[in-house]
């Protein structure tokens, strides 16, 4: 019984996550249609990051994982941010 309640609780979380993801997709397509110029790119990437976070936290259970795993993921994201950031110091000046 307890197991069943847990299971349907998780189902509700998954469906709520999915609905949020669909809503954010509708939002990002609408915003892209408004031609915000430079801010358009920024908004798109921001919305994509919210969607990616939802998938990571709930579908991939990151919310319920150990601190070690969370720290490892943050380390990976930080590495990527440093690589992208340093490249743009160069690219931004040259082009």
């Amino acid at each position: 019984m307890n197991n069943n309640a847990k299971s349907s609780g998780r189902t509700a979380i998954y469906i709520a996550t999915w609905i949020c993801l669909l809503a954010l997709t509708a939002l990002t397509v609408t915003v892209a249609g408004m031609n915000l110029g430079k801010y358009g790119a920024l908004t798109s990437v921001l919305i994509a990051s919210v969607k990616a976070s939802l998938i990571l936290l709930f579908f991939m259970h990151l919310k319920y994982e150990t601190l070690l795993l969370k720290a490892m993921l943050l380390g990976t994201i930080a590495t990527i941010a440093v690589i992208i950031g340093l490249t743009f110091f160069d690219v931004g000046i040259r082009y």
């Binding site: 990002t28 892209a32 358009g40 798109s44 990437v45 994509a48 990616a52 998938i55 579908f59 991939m60």
Partner: peptide, 21 residues
């Protein structure tokens, strides 16, 4: 986990190629 990660990658591919102009 693998399937969801492939989804995460697409979440970025979609705006980058189709939406940002």
């Amino acid at each position: 986990l693998y399937w969801h990660l492939v989804d995460v990658v697409w979440v970025y591919l979609f705006p980058v190629f189709y939406l940002i102009r």
